[in-house]
Structure formats: C-alpha cells, structure tokens
Design a protein around this nucleic acid. Sequence first.
DNA 1: GTCTTTTTTCACCAGGTGATGAAATGGCGA
DNA 2: TCGCCATTTCATCACCTGGTGAAAAAAGAC
Lengths: 234, 234
Amino acid sequence: MTAAKPLARSGGRGRPSKATGLDLKQMILDAAEGMFARHGFYGVTTRQVAAEAGVDTALIHYYFGAKRELFDAVFLRRAEILNQARIASMDVYEADHARGEAMTVEGVITAFIDPLLRISQDGGPGWKSYFALVAQVNNTPAWGGETMTRFFDPVVHRLVETLKTVRPQAEYRDLYWCYQFLTGSMMLALSETGRIDSLSEGVCHSSDLEAVRVRLFAYCAAGFESVIGRAAKA
Amino acid sequence: MTAAKPLARSGGRGRPSKATGLDLKQMILDAAEGMFARHGFYGVTTRQVAAEAGVDTALIHYYFGAKRELFDAVFLRRAEILNQARIASMDVYEADHARGEAMTVEGVITAFIDPLLRISQDGGPGWKSYFALVAQVNNTPAWGGETMTRFFDPVVHRLVETLKTVRPQAEYRDLYWCYQFLTGSMMLALSETGRIDSLSEGVCHSSDLEAVRVRLFAYCAAGFESVIGRAAKA
DNA sequence: GTCTTTTTTCACCAGGTGATGAAATGGCGA
DNA sequence: TCGCCATTTCATCACCTGGTGAAAAAAGAC
C-alpha cells in the first residue's frame, strides 16, 4: 500500500543482505506485526506484508515458511522479552520485601502490570503494535489459545501464588476471577484502541499510559480486596 | 463444513420461503454470527456462511448485498435490543431510588452490566456468539470503531452521568478511565474465551456467569471508589 | 579469477474469493 | 388458468490467495 513494488537496494537480483546493514528479516517482522495487529491474521495477505516491508513475496517464504509460521514468529519475537521483564519485576518486588515491610496487593499488582506499561512507553512503536496483537489474540477464542497458555500462564501463576501469600485467606477461585478482570482492563488499555478518546470527547487519550498507570493499579487492587473481603464474610 | 451443498427444502429451484416457515434470512444471520464471532470478518468466507446456513451463496447477496453489509446486519440485529435492555435497567434503578435510599456506585454499575449477563444466560446461544463478536470488534482498532461509537456511546454517557450524580466530586477523567477498565473486564467475561478454564486448571469456568455476577460488580465498584477517592486526596 | 553458497527475483500454479446475471421455480392474485 | 414476481439456483467472471521452483545476482572462499 505504501511502498513501491520490490524496491530492492541495488539494481539487480543479487544478495545485498549484509551490504545494507538492515536486517530484512526484522523488517518483514515489523511490517507483519503492524498489519496483523491492525487487521488480524486473515485480514492481511503475505503480499501486503511484502509490499509494506519493501520486499518480494517469495522472500517471506524463504525466511519464514508458511503464513502461519510468519505469524508465530511475530508473536514469539517479543513474548520471551515480555515474560522475562515481568518475572524480573516481581523478583525485585519480592526481594525488596523479603524482610522489612510487608508486601501489599497493590504492590504485587503493580509489579505485574507496570513492566508492560513501561515497555509500551519506552520500547518503541513496534511494542504498541505487539500489545494490540496480543490483545486481539487474547480474546479470539480457539485461535491463539494454546500459544497464549504456553507463554503467559507461568507468570500468571506466579502472580496468583504471590497474592495468595499476601492474603492467605483468599480463595483461588476469587484470585483467578479477579485476575481475569485485571487482564481484560490491562489489555484494553495497552492496545490503545482510541475508543476512550472519542467516547470522552477529548478528555482522555488512550495513548496516555501515564493516566493508566495512575489509576489502574489502585483500581485493580481495590477490586481484588473487595472480592476477597466479600468472600471472607460469606 | 457441516451442511451439504444447497440442501434446499424441495427438489427444484423454486420459492419455498413461506412453505418452510423458517426464515432463511435469520438462518443466514445465525450462521454468520457464529462464524464471525469465532474467526473474525476476514476469517470467514461467504461460501462458508452459506454452507453452514444450508443455503446457496448467491442468496446471501440477494438478501444482504456485499459481505460487509452482511456483517453489519449481524451486528445491528442485536445491538438495539441490547441498548434498550440496558437503558431500561438503568431507568428502573434510578426510579427505584428517586426518593428514599440513595443510589450507590455498585448499584449503578450493576444496573449497567447485569442486563448483559442476564441476556447471555437466558437469551439463547446466539447471544453468546454475539458477545464474543462485540468483544472482538471492541478491541480491533480502526475497524468497528464508528459502529461501536454510534451504538454504545449514549448508554455509556448515561452511566457516567449517573455516576457523577452519585459522586459529584468525581472528575470526568477518572470516570471515563474507570469505565474503560470496567468494559475491558466485562467484555472479556462475556466473550467466554475459555482461557480461565485452563489457566485455573478447572477451578473456574468461563461459562459460569453466575460466578462473574458475584464478583464483577463488587470488583468494579471498589475500583471506581478507589480511583475517585485517590483523586480527591491529591 | 573461478567456484560455491546464499540471497533475491521472476514467472507461474491450482485453488479460492466476492460478486453478478440470467435462468428456473412455484406461490399467488386475476 | 395464466402470467406475474419474489425467491432460489446455476454458471461463471475477474481477481486474488498462499505457495513453489528455477533462474539470476552477488558475497565469500580459495
């Protein structure tokens, strides 16, 4: 749509891979990431991705194989980074509270969510697309389920177990449901759909992740406490 | 995939529309609804819809026109019903508290969300697909945005204004952000992705909307109160 | 300078896509 | 009874889809 057809670096067919210094593979992944995030897997053709990346269609198959494998490559590229950032964040939080002042629900939740907000703010535009992609996969049933599970379940279990430590009387049922509420809010915020901009008639902007940071942690923490407390009374 | 090819009611080409008593138009919409919900707009072909509905492909064009118009018809069929149910629910709640005991944040939120849960539980399987569809449209930026706005903004504004009445000191910024958190949680719950089933290893089931009802209202209400309260202090 | 290997391009396929126009069918009013 | 007309089907179009195989070009080894 944007780029001309092949737009090769030199004239002929050759092999200027190292010559350009730019990694074609990454350029393809970047293009695919943005387009998949906006239009979904079926809403994008390999030809569109190739055009956007300024590359021949066959090159995509050369590097990644089938279209689905390209999608997986896009998904996996950042998944591990994300996971490590979150685990590190929770490690730090727990270590800081190993002795001394006790952990809080809001603290744990902040340690869980904040890395994502931080990465989205500081990590460059590719990460914004990536979060939109994850959000889309997250609530497309029976489509990204298996991948989602394999990559993100461990860190969620970590969150739940830590919360269980902070509030030992809480039931797992409540913790899992509250996690689901949390993840719905978080993913919608991270995907920056722009809905809140028009809805609020300019009062809020979905790109304003600082505004999210100021509110989301407290919001979720209060929700957790309320649900846990209500269950304890019953 | 399931149905045979044309599977017409009688042998020939004729016109048994009224003869069957079943409205072909509704059958097409039902089939399209389920498939769009599962695979998205681009993940479904008109031929697949036709096969699922047991109808010839050309009939879809005869009734609805282009594929996008079919999608819109699916979306619109239930949107108005949804809107009226929510507005009625909030009318009732406000009328019940016109004088006498004061409205509460949790009460208002319940009046806003509960109709959807109720419809999803009692309205038949088509509604489940529909909610999954709306959830998908909701966080696909730049795709269902305009339709979403046109249909669902009014009732959201109604919610925000009512909450402003209940908590006059609250700022609109906070109310809109909290609404966004709420809608993320609510839509994920309504779309019943099954993620929580595997995540919790069977402790929770995404089809258990009663479990959602018991927790979500309290969760969101506490979140609102917390954000409003925190802002007031600052 | 040649030869090998990697990268890139081209040409193309078999099948599927949304969509259309015209024909067939049969209910229904005259 | 007959012809009208809404409905349903068939055949097909022009185009696009994901994917492939072989040729061309350049990089690097020797």
